[in-house]
């Protein structure tokens, strides 16, 4: 009373807002990006051209892609991670004493959050342009050769296993987070509603896990040489359509050679922005 209360920091004064933004950022945009990413990856199961065409769609954003990536993916993800680590540091997991389902999930949410973070860093270093300075000129993901470069990158068994762990952790973190988000924001309040919501989040998790593991399986089984061929031909077409290459009669096997390609209808494509 007679002691002046120490003025509270910005962070503590806005703790509620920060935690709510943290919660929201897990769903939008980070979670939404995850869903798009995993479903895009899963398209590899439809063949290299399917995957390639989706990658091309993303890259059609052209010069906008980098700022969009930074503003809507990397910064929110960094924010989510930073607050997440602060939350983890402030908690005292006690699943040993209280091995209840909810508590196990609480603990897993934190563990998978940290695994996902490590995985994403590794993933970026290995494949993303952000990681290029770290990994050197070799490797990485070439958006014009989506399937083949990705397949080469994750083909070693150890890498595949790490990816599987990373993907499953991320999916658990997201779908479990979806459920807790609903409690945090008060979407489901009664135990019965929480149970129903839990089934939904489990379904989301199963679908995303299937998509993520499917993509890994697909990349491991795809014929890299063949895929490369497909990608080369698709790349040619794209460049031809953009006028970078003359269209020559008989030089368009890419179109005729792919039985189920939707490429001709894929709209404008761009090779810029990588």
């Amino acid at each position: 009373m007679n002691q002046p209360e120490p003025s509270r920091s910005f962070l503590s004064r806005h703790q509620f807002l920060i935690y709510r933004l943290f919660s929201l950022s897990g769903l939008i945009p980070v979670g939404a990006f995850l869903v798009v990413h995993l479903l895009t990856n899963a398209s590899v199961l439809g063949g290299p051209e399917s995957f390639q065409s989706r990658v091309d769609m993303i890259h059609s954003l052209g010069p906008l892609l980098v700022p969009i990536e930074i503003a809507f993916i990397f910064l929110p993800m960094l924010f989510h991670a930073a607050v997440g680590f602060a939350i983890i540091a402030g908690g005292l997991p006690n699943v040993g004493s209280y091995p209840y389902v909810g508590n196990v999930r609480y603990t897993l949410q934190r563990a998978t959050g940290m695994i996902a973070f490590a995985f994403i860093i590794g993933h970026l270093i290995q494949l993303h342009w952000l990681g290029a300075p770290l990994r050197g000129s070799e490797g990485g993901f070439d958006p014009h050769h989506a399937t083949s470069t990705a397949a080469i990158a994750i083909r070693p068994l150890l890498v595949s296993i790490l990816y599987a762990i990373g993907v499953l952790s991320t999916v658990f973190h997201f779908s479990n987070g979806l459920w807790t988000l609903g409690i945090t924001w008060g979407l489901w309040t009664s135990p019965a509603a929480m149970r129903r919501a839990n089934w939904v989040s489990i379904a989301v998790g199963v679908v995303l896990a299937a998509a993520g593991l499917g993509a890994i399986g697909g990349l491991r089984t795809v014929d890299v040489a063949k895929a490369r061929g497909v990608e080369d031909r698709m790349d040619e077409v794209k460049r031809m359509l953009k006028g970078e290459m003359p269209i020559e009669e008989g030089r368009s096997p890419a179109v005729r050679g792919t039985s189920n390609s939707s490429l001709p209808n894929a709209g404008p494509v761009s090779s810029e922005g990588t």
Partner: peptide, 19 residues
């Protein structure tokens, strides 16, 4: 409840209701 140390600190472990 929305001040420092408020509702946002809940981590949804749900041990409270179990014990």
């Amino acid at each position: 409840l929305t001040g420092e140390g408020g509702i946002q600190m809940c981590g949804n472990a749900q041990n409270c209701v179990a014990v």
